[in-house]
């Protein structure tokens, strides 16, 4: 995915596809979000949304196989806080899925999909792309209001 003008990369690291990594990823997102100017509550929600997206990569794109890695990049451009997750696992596009109607969800005893719902509730913009090298990239944006 093309970089934006004036984009500053604040953090970039490969993580193993293990759920043990979620704790450190959340901590990093929360720290960077606060440093960028978000309040504690928004930073907490951003960390939650990124946790959900990373969990989907670990559990679904790689089916729980811990022998792989995925990249977490946090950047800022103007008033935008951008988290890009890149993996080489099975393609999974959460941006296509609708926001859940939770009343129906409970009435019909549905399962799954809560993580994507959280991502969509928290983020201003969610975009998914398969890159030239066949990597999947999920890009989540939150604006500093």
């Amino acid at each position: 995915m093309q970089r934006e003008k004036h984009q500053i990369v604040r953090f970039k690291k490969e993580f193993e596809t293990r759920t043990e990594e979620l704790h450190d990823i959340r901590q990093r997102v929360e720290d960077e979000a606060i440093d960028f100017g978000f309040d504690q509550e928004t930073a907490f929600r951003l960390a939650l949304a990124v946790d959900e997206a990373c969990t989907n990569i670990i559990k679904h794109s790689y089916a729980g196989n811990p022998a792989n890695t995925f990249e977490v990049e946090i950047s800022t451009a103007g008033d935008r806080f951008v988290i890009a997750l890149t993996d080489h696992g099975k393609s999974f596009d959460p941006s296509d899925l609708p926001v859940l109607d939770m009343k129906k969800y409970f009435e019909q005893c549905l399962r799954g999909g809560l993580g994507v719902h959280i991502i969509k509730m928290v983020m201003d913009d969610v975009a998914y792309a398969v890159m030239k090298n066949h990597a999947n990239q999920l890009r989540m944006i939150k604006r500093l209001l």
């Binding site: 979620l22 939650l48 959900e52 399962r111 799954g112 809560l114 719902h117 959280i118």
Partner: peptide, 16 residues
């Protein structure tokens, strides 16, 4: 201190 949807899913799985 923290809960994600994986935690919420546990309550969903057993409540019925």
């Amino acid at each position: 201190i923290y809960i994600s949807s994986a935690g919420l899913g546990v309550f969903m799985a057993f409540v019925e």
